[in-house]
């Protein structure tokens, strides 16, 4: 009979496809209310909301077409961290998710900072959250003064590593320079306590390497233009002109992309490094 019920269900769904919900819902948005309703099961409920937050972020990011809406991301993370105020990774991952620029994320650095500040209020001894706030100011808001102040605050938290002091000074002096970004990601890679964060830092460092690679390619493209009076159509033109030894590849081994007739170069759309972040000092100039 069980097999029969399964078979009937499959037949029914094949004939009358279930209508997918138009939008994900959050029935309860108040963290304190949810904490009361959870009785003593708030930690388990926090895990459920954390899984929902990951799924919401991941499925929206991977969605192929249409407007991407990350509207539930912050409420889900807020509920997670209210139910379990010590949920370390919800603050750190959540901040990265929220700050990521659209379409890879909602592009909400303010919400990212708000989440981290909530973490600092819950655990003032976590210098990592203070560092992360500085990082969001640095990388996503290009506010190097605020970034340096937060790095300075992080360095004053008991137990913070010694490199935070020099980092604050470097940021004050060279905010927006690629060298400063590299230093920041390198420190995050070496000090992160989570494999996912380490992988993300490693990927960002590779993106910086790719940007260095693009900077090395641009003179060759300009030289081709000066020599022939037109932009190259593909890498073969540059190789044929003897300006490059072969098709250039990014640090992951994927060929760089050259837009025909414009001279613009970027990482390939199929590269794991795509899209490259907008470099702070390219937007606002050097902030030294």
């Amino acid at each position: 009979m069980m097999a029969a019920s399964v078979a009937v269900q499959m037949a029914r769904e094949a004939r009358f496809a279930s209508v997918a919900s138009e939008a994900s819902l959050l029935y309860v948005r108040s963290g304190p209310t949810l904490t009361r309703l959870a009785l003593s099961f708030d930690d388990l409920l926090a895990d459920v909301y954390w899984i929902r937050a990951i799924q919401h972020y991941g499925s929206t990011k991977r969605a192929d077409a249409g407007e991407k809406s990350y509207a539930l991301l912050y409420p889900l993370l807020d509920l997670t961290t209210t139910l379990d105020p010590r949920f370390n990774i919800a603050y750190r991952f959540g901040a990265i998710f929220l700050a990521e620029a659209y379409p890879d994320g909602p592009g909400q650095p303010e919400q990212s900072i708000a989440l981290l500040e909530k973490g600092v209020a819950a655990m003032p001894d976590r210098w990592q959250y203070v560092l992360d706030i500085g990082f969001v100011h640095y990388w996503w808001r290009q506010d190097y003064g605020a970034a340096a102040e937060w790095f300075e605050r992080a360095s004053q938290v008991e137990g913070a590593p010694q490199w935070l002091g020099p980092l604050a000074a470097t940021t004050f002096a060279q905010g927006g320079q690629r060298a400063g970004s590299r230093l920041l990601w390198q420190q995050l890679l070496e000090t992160s306590d989570n494999e996912w964060l380490q992988n993300e830092a490693a990927r960002q460092l590779l993106q910086l390497d790719a940007m260095d690679g693009l900077d090395q390619l641009r003179p060759a493209i300009t030289a081709y233009r000066e020599r022939t009076g037109q932009w190259p159509g593909d890498w073969g033109d540059l190789v044929g002109a003897g300006l490059l030894p072969g098709v250039p590849v990014d640090p992951t081994g994927t060929a760089y992309r050259l837009r025909p007739g414009t001279g613009e170069v970027d990482v390939g759309a199929d590269s794991v490094l795509h899209p490259l972040p907008t470099e702070p000092n390219r937007l606002f100039g050097t902030a030294s």
Binding site: D43, L44, A46, D47, W50, I51, I54, Q55, I89, F93, N194, E195, W196
Partner: peptide, 14 residues
């Protein structure tokens, strides 16, 4: 598969 490295915490909670 779902929790981004938080499996031990969640198993303890569960």
């Amino acid at each position: 598969q779902l929790t981004a490295g938080q499996d031990v915490k969640i198993i303890k909670d569960l």
